[in-house]
Nucleic acid binder design. Sequence first.
DNA 1: AGACTAACCTGAAAGC
DNA 2: TGCTTTCAGGTTAGTC
Length: 288
Amino acid sequence: MPELPEVEVTRRRISPLLLGRSIRTVITTAPSYVFLTAPHLLEQKLTGRTFVALTRHGKYLLGQLDDGARLLVHLGMTGQLFGEGASSPRLLRRTANGTLGSCRQFEPDAHTHLILRFESGPAVFFRDTRKFGKVQWLAPDESSARLNKLGPDALHISGATLHSRLKKRRGPLKSQLLDQSVLAGAGNIYADEALYLSRIRPTRMAHRVSLDSCRRLVDSLQQVLLRSIETGGSSINDYVTPDGSDGGYQDERHVYGLEGQPCKTCSTAIARVVIGQRSAHYCPRCQR
DNA sequence: AGACTAACCTGAAAGC
DNA sequence: TGCTTTCAGGTTAGTC
């Protein structure tokens, strides 16, 4: 499930394949949930263009085109952006008729919604089984309501800023951390991990969290996000990095998906509760 | 304005 | 074994 680190890892790995290469062909699937811009329009607008920059805010990728337009990409839950020649372990498992573990090249399938072929170099694929991802072409100077409402990026927010933003908010802290208009980039995994490391209970009322706690929380959050970027992102479920390799962070989790297992600090069983329709995992003893 | 809920979609895993 | 149900979660539109 792509959160900020997975999107950042994707950005770094896909940039060299994308930037400075002239787009020769654009192939899309039928209109679907992922296309905020109609596929035929996308083909028309991207063909012949070149990406000059690829940036990230929260979980959004933003490609800057040489004509001033922009391409907004969100990976949703199961989105993948990767280069031709990558092998996906998950795909291999499902499609392997023969030898498991052999490196077979990815072949575009029904879930591959967008293919960019360039004048030279490997193609770039956007694949998303559950279609929660988004692709949108933005005209030069066209603003995006989606981008505009995002809060500060989780990697750059300060404890003081988070504290002041939480002041106006009601409800449990966990829900606020997942609200991308409060801060952008945290998802369920890293929110739970950051709360654990800063020893704050996810059910705490957001507006009552102290400045000191906010500072600890932001420190912890940035620590886990940066560490996860280093290790190539989590890949608990559907995520694979653009070159097809597994990220390593799932081995470093303390609470997420570990209900009933002993806390690494105090051995108390990790608890799981539902907050705002999402599961939240925490240590009942360490987190207050 | 902010909070809450349902809906979007598919595949893996659990239940029967 | 095989079919059915549940669950996972990022985001938004709609409602209160």
